[in-house]
Computed example of a mutant assay.
Amino acid sequence: MNTPLLQTRDLTKAYRHKTGFFANPTSQLAANSISFELAPRERIGVVGESGSGKSTLGRLLLGLTTPTGGDVWFDGVNHKDRSARDWTAFRKRTALVQQNPLSALNPQMTIGEQVAEGLLVHHVAGRAEAYERSAAMLERVGLSSAMMTRYPHQMSGGQRQRVIIARALILDPGLVVFDEAVSALDVSVQAQVVALLRSLWQERDLAYVFITHDLRIVRHLVDRIAVMYLGRIVETGDIRSVYEQPRHPYTRALLASVPSMDPTIRNIEPPIKGELDAAKVSYGCAFRSRCPYAIQRCASETPVLRTVDGQQAACHRAEELARSVASQTDVAQRKEMAS
Rank of each mutant, 00 (worst) to 15 (best):
R198T: 13
R198E: 07
R198Q: 14
L200M: 02
W201L: 10
Q202Y: 00
E203G: 05
R204S: 14
R204K: 12
D205R: 14
A207D: 02
Y208T: 00
Y208L: 03
V209Q: 01
F210S: 02
F210K: 01
I211L: 09
H213G: 07
H213Q: 11
H213K: 10
H213N: 10
L215R: 03
R216N: 14
V218T: 02
V218D: 00
H220T: 10
H220Y: 15
H220E: 13
H220S: 13
L221P: 04
D223L: 08
D223E: 15
R224A: 07
I225K: 01
I225C: 02
I225S: 00
A226H: 04
V227T: 04
V227A: 05
V227W: 00
Y229W: 08
Y229D: 05
L230C: 03
L230G: 01
G231Y: 09
R232S: 14
R232H: 13
I233T: 06
E235Y: 09
T236F: 05
G237A: 03
D238G: 06
D238F: 06
D238H: 06
I239V: 15
I239Y: 07
R240Y: 14
S241R: 12
V242D: 03
V242R: 06
V242A: 03
Y243A: 02
E244S: 13
Q245W: 05
P246C: 04
R247C: 01
R247M: 02
R247T: 01
H248P: 00
H248D: 03
H248G: 01
H248A: 02
H248L: 01
H248W: 05
P249K: 05
P249Q: 09
R252M: 09
A253N: 08
L254D: 00
L254E: 00
L255M: 05
A256E: 06
A256I: 07
S257W: 03
S257A: 15
S257H: 02
P259M: 05
M261A: 15
D262S: 11
D262T: 07
T264W: 11
T264D: 15
T264V: 12
I265W: 13
I265L: 15
I265A: 15
R266K: 15
R266S: 13
R266L: 13
R266G: 08
N267F: 00
E269Y: 08
E269F: 06
E269V: 14
P270V: 05
P270D: 07
P271V: 10
I272K: 05
K273S: 12
K273I: 12
G274T: 03
E275L: 12
E275W: 10
